[in-house]
Design a protein around this nucleic acid. Sequence first.
DNA 1: TTATTTCCCGGTATCGTTTGCGTAAATTGA
DNA 2: TCAATTTACGCAAACGATACCGGGAAATAA
Lengths: 347, 347
Amino acid sequence: MKYEAITIKDIAKALELSTSTVSRALRDSHEISFETKERVIAYAKEMNYRPNPIALSLKEKRSSSIGVLVSEIANSFFSQAINGIESVAQEHGYNVIIAQSKEDYQREVSALNYLASRSVDGILISVSAGTSDFSNINELYLRGMPLVSFDRVVDHLKMHKVKVDNYKGGYEATKHLIKNGYKNIACIASSAYLSITEERVAGYKDALKSSGMAIDETMIDYCLHSGLIYEEVEAVMARMMKQKNKPDAILACSDKITTNVMRYCQIKKIKIPTKIGLLGFSNLDLTDLLTPSLSVVRQPASEMGRIAAELLIKTIESKRALTTFEEVILPTELFQRASSAKKPKVK
Amino acid sequence: MKYEAITIKDIAKALELSTSTVSRALRDSHEISFETKERVIAYAKEMNYRPNPIALSLKEKRSSSIGVLVSEIANSFFSQAINGIESVAQEHGYNVIIAQSKEDYQREVSALNYLASRSVDGILISVSAGTSDFSNINELYLRGMPLVSFDRVVDHLKMHKVKVDNYKGGYEATKHLIKNGYKNIACIASSAYLSITEERVAGYKDALKSSGMAIDETMIDYCLHSGLIYEEVEAVMARMMKQKNKPDAILACSDKITTNVMRYCQIKKIKIPTKIGLLGFSNLDLTDLLTPSLSVVRQPASEMGRIAAELLIKTIESKRALTTFEEVILPTELFQRASSAKKPKVK
DNA sequence: TTATTTCCCGGTATCGTTTGCGTAAATTGA
DNA sequence: TCAATTTACGCAAACGATACCGGGAAATAA
């Protein structure tokens, strides 16, 4: 079945005018008489005429749509970010096309090809945790595709970047755990490929150092899928809880790692925070309602999306290729709740 | 800046052929000699040629994209549904354009206009809770736009529908609360405009009746924004807790109502389930980790999205207008957890 | 009256692709 | 050897909208 829209030709035929006259009348050109304009506009309104965006796109060589590549839509951080992106896009007359990588490199490559072949005007990228080869993205850049990366940015690529101060987020979170009396703080991070992982872990390490605590590499581990798969978190937790130097607190560096650590502890009946403290990066809306209420480092997801979208649209609409690239760094927010409560001085 | 893609014309010029020959060679037409095909295909591959989808769209009068209208992306149910939609769309070569209504009628109208004017090939609709006038949707139907509604379907409109058995979901949930000893079960539902509200409430009422319990209309209330705004839930709860016949259990009929009731109880320090039992419709992934773990009626969101997308694409690709419409009804799943635990026989 | 300007509007090319039609050259058949 | 067929390609129109170019008619100026 087909949805037949009225075209400028239909109007021209009905009013016995040429298409160019109709076109100009609708765009309020000064070379069209007042009466003709009136007639055309009235008829167009009556017939509910809308210019065909596809024809416009072909003519203007732009599609007025932007692509968004995230690892997973059904993730609180990304759905909030998309929320922000969508509202900015709407304001500027762009539509948003979504693609997911599911934290997989191959899917990311095909998703990017997909978006590029759908001729979007630009792409917002948050790279997948499984991605270590960025040649694909770089190739898009070289071919002139406007790009902005957010959250999981790629340091050495030339493009605008919007991220949070991951180092500080990791530092403050760790400091908070130390202040509350935890002595063996483990860190479970996303894929080591990601710069956000590197930064958060660096913050964690520096916090330990600055408090005169030793860094034990067995207390640091990574999840290639960013915790998307329960089993990868389970494996790390199982290993850590088995080792001699057991953690008494966990700093979880992604949304899914945080909740999966929590799930692990519930399944294994490990009490939080009495047996183990927990503080995680998370953008869930109801961390305050969890058992126990969860201490989190929260990112301004929606705002990141808004800013990234603004930058992308600015890039798209700028006449010439950019030579300088902005890096916007937003603050994280630390919510101290029960899961990282002060440790009782018992031993 | 602009992303310049290679066109069929560029190939034609480079190889000293006509565009039609190139086009036919790429589509493996029998009227092109083997050698010419080889040359064209090799060159196209070398130059990484991709047909311009916009030109295709203009020619074929189809955009290979579908619109999705939901109330809110950052909602677990909808993000899961979009997940399913996106994967099916991808499989069939469609892209997904998202729009949000934020439970507001005016925004829904403009979002629909937006999608229609972006010339999508079809639209998946889950109506906003604030919508009582469906003339807009009906008009789209009359103009021949392929439509499928899911979750929040509109009964009297002619289109495919994908939903869950809301009546049964409400019935079984209420029966479960009754079985666990609750006597004054209140029901907080979404907007009364929605058929899902009607059905869930009907299930609730029939469950009470079948257990010989009276129906008290003061124990039933509605939230126009489906609980999206905390204050509307707060107002209902405050009213109910103040009245003479206080509820000892709540059946919450949407994701946001459920969590906002929980939040209300936490703020007001009303113990769940000792003071009040709670069971809600929800698709959150971590209801098992909440305090207390939350009993929920869960909908197969991703599957609903998949099925709805399949139906829509089938509708789009069918030659002639449909005369019969499918209504797919999926089962809900009841998870019994601590928030609706058996009531102690104390008074 | 004639030349010049102004006002309105139509013709046509264009964006990238597909496709029906036309046709020269090559091949076939008798 | 000549007509008939096949092969292999080019030309041009079409999808919907825009914009440059150009031109007829009326209005103004000389």
